[in-house]
């Protein structure tokens, strides 16, 4: 900031100041738009159905229904679902990041003939919509006796997120300086050491980014869970929402409360991971 102003200040400080103010006003307006949904969701979670549909959506709940939260906690198996969501998400994200990094490293850093072809095959995986694969997948897991086993969801999450993750990693690997890795090779470093001790640390920012994206996808996913899991003991939070969708009547306030509860852990994880994005390549490359 200081630097920007000192260099720019030489030319035209008033114009810069006006420009900066306009910029800030714009940025803040956008910020309001972006944070409002969270506030809205919180209000929503304290409303009854008649308030949800009748009143202006801006209106504050007249008689906040905190009992929505109590109901969500007692009527649904929320605490169990919560635990399942956490561990299934964590395992899937870690698996995806590791496998995707392996593949991207092999494709961009190692020399083999088929690398373009294999990359293409991964990219095609990006193009398959979940709904067109769900029925064959079900029979596949049925054959393997993996229906109603969390492994079926973890593997599906990993497989379906791999193409996206590889694509994003790829863009970064291409722009990443290779000198350090090359130097390491000259020093006689083993390939695994290069990968784990140089490349992975250097890609922290993008790993954090893809971790966030993967985490959000897995956390909010419900089609796989619904289809592959039938026991309560393996279900995840998104299924908790369904608990409030009835045959003819849906309890929207309770859904709001479930959504609100389920966003908290992911918000925290997001804030933590999001800081890792900034810890740039510089740190990794100097110390790696």
């Amino acid at each position: 900031m200081a630097q920007t102003q000192s260099t720019a200040g030489k030319d035209n400080s008033i114009l810069t100041k006006v420009g900066m103010s306009v910029l800030y006003i714009g940025l803040i307006i956008v910020a309001v738009f972006q944070i409002y949904p969270l506030i809205w969701l919180f209000q929503f979670s304290l409303k009854s159905n008649s308030e949800v549909f009748g009143m202006s959506p801006f209106a504050l709940p007249q008689d906040p229904k905190w009992e929505n939260y109590v109901r969500v906690w007692t009527d649904g198996n929320i605490n169990l679902y919560f635990f399942n969501s956490v561990w299934i998400t964590v395992v899937s994200v870690l698996l995806t990041l590791l496998f995707a990094s392996f593949v991207t490293f092999a494709i961009t850093r190692m020399n083999w003939k088929l690398n373009k072809l294999v990359l293409g095959l991964f990219m095609v995986g990006l193009m398959v919509p979940i709904h067109s694969a769900i029925i064959p997948l079900f029979s596949f897991f049925l054959e393997l006796n993996l229906i109603d086993n969390p492994l079926s969801i973890i593997l599906s999450y990993t497989a379906f997120n791999l193409p996206l993750t590889i694509m994003i990693l790829l863009g970064f690997y291409y722009t990443l300086p290779r000198e350090i890795e090359e130097a390491a090779v000259v020093d006689g470093c083993s390939i695994h050491r290069i990968f784990f001790q140089i490349t992975l640390p250097m890609t922290t920012p993008v790993l954090a980014t893809t971790a966030i994206i993967n985490m959000i996808y897995n956390w909010n996913e419900f089609i796989f869970v619904n289809t592959f899991i039938s026991s309560d003991k393996f279900k995840t939070l998104t299924v908790g929402i369904q608990n409030f969708i009835g045959q003819y009547l849906t309890d929207w306030g309770a859904i709001g409360a479930t959504l609100m509860i389920s966003i908290i852990p992911i918000l925290i994880a997001f804030l933590i991971l999001s800081n890792r994005i900034v810890e740039g390549i510089a740190a990794g490359s100097v110390k790696g």
Partner: peptide, 19 residues
Amino acid sequence: VEILGNEQYKEKLKVLSTS
């Protein structure tokens, strides 16, 4: 017992029947 919401119930029944 397995319990699902309305739409998910229909979808799951469909998938189960294919197998």
